[in-house]
């Protein structure tokens, strides 16, 4: 039986190996994704993002346990940073999820960013699709610890939960652009610490300043994930968002936008690969660089000439 058939029949090893094949771009990667594609689009994808140490893994662990009690199956893709120097990584998100390891209804996969800067890795979306095809009902994506501008999660998730902690800055931080714009739901974790109420007030103010009268005003929950406090309420809020997405038609809109952006990314990737492969193997690339260095040509003229040749 091939890997896709095994995966669809429920093999966890096949699921795991399929993710590896796609992440490492093995020869069979495209074939795997092609065969799995018709089976995707069923899971609800929840993004968990926030600064390092905010408690994303612990929170994901607690949320997953509650969904398990409701009988739902869970996939978790946990992303941690890859070293820009060695290419290595310490993927440590499982430490907070050990109790889920032996639950057959849960599949956890750690990924290094491998050079991507948006808080996810380039293959995160594919890993989610593979888990989706394997029949997981809810898939969590835990991003790397983010700063202000790593917002790729919003393109990959149906519901984005931004996890914050008290004590990281004043209210000017809260009105800056970036991750605070992408939350469908906010969770103030470690809410037993000083400053939790103030942070909530600042966030409330920021959200109420929103000029676009949206149908969904992101709710703010307070949690202490390590003690399990506030988790049921957070789940209720997330479920509320899931209901809103369905009732308002927003889910369909988001998924159309995602399908479109994924297709564009794939086209770009293939054009890049095709063009670059051809001009580097033919030696054209070196000639172009040499011509630029002598100022015989300018780069814009080269690109125009190149594209004209390919589009003929």
């Amino acid at each position: 039986m091939d890997i896709v058939a095994e995966l669809l029949a429920g093999s966890r090893l096949a699921l795991s190996r399929a993710i590896t094949a796609v992440e490492n771009e093995y020869e069979n990667a495209t074939a795997i994704m092609q065969k799995l594609y018709p089976h995707t689009g069923r899971a609800h994808v929840i993004g968990i993002t926030g600064p390092p140490g905010a408690g994303k893994s612990t929170l994901t662990d607690k949320l997953a346990k509650i969904y398990r009690r409701q009988g739902k199956t869970i996939g978790i893709v946990a992303v941690d940073p890859t070293s820009p120097f060695s290419g290595g990584a310490i993927l440590g998100d499982r430490i907070r999820m050990n109790e889920l390891t032996l639950d057959e209804g849960v599949f956890i996969r750690s990924m290094g960013t491998r050079g991507s800067l948006g808080g996810l890795s380039r293959k995160t979306a594919d890993a989610v699709k593979i888990m989706d095809a394997a029949g997981k009902d809810i898939i969590f994506i835990e991003t790397v610890g983010v700063g202000q501008s790593e917002v790729d999660i919003v393109k990959a998730a149906d519901t984005t939960v931004v996890v914050l902690v008290p004590g990281l800055g004043d209210d000017i931080q809260a009105i800056k652009a970036g991750i605070l714009e992408i939350g469908d739901v906010f969770a103030i974790n470690k809410a037993d610490r000083e400053g939790a109420e103030r942070l909530k007030a600042e966030l409330d103010m920021m959200l109420d300043l929103d000029q676009v009268k949206a149908e969904w005003r992101p709710p703010i929950n307070q949690t202490v994930a390590s003690q399990g406090t506030g988790i049921e309420e957070l789940i209720a809020t997330i479920d509320g968002h899931i209901d809103y997405l369905a009732a308002s038609g927003e889910l369909a809109r988001r998924r159309t936008a995602r399908t479109r952006s994924e297709l564009i990314a794939l086209i770009e990737e293939h054009i890049n690969r095709h063009v670059l492969k051809q001009i580097s193997s033919s030696g054209q690339l070196d000639e172009m660089v040499a011509s630029l260095e002598k100022r015989q040509e300018d780069p814009y003229a080269i690109v125009t000439r190149l594209l004209a040749a390919f589009l003929r």
Binding site: T82, S83, S86, G87, G88, A89, I90, L91, G92, R94, I95, N98, T101, L102, S110, G112
Partner: peptide, 20 residues
């Protein structure tokens, strides 16, 4: 050390059972 050698290291913490 393995990270610095370019490996992806999955660290799972203390007191793991063989099953885990």
């Amino acid at each position: 050390a393995l990270r610095d050698a370019g490996f992806e290291v999955i660290y799972t913490g203390l007191r793991q059972t063989p099953e885990q």
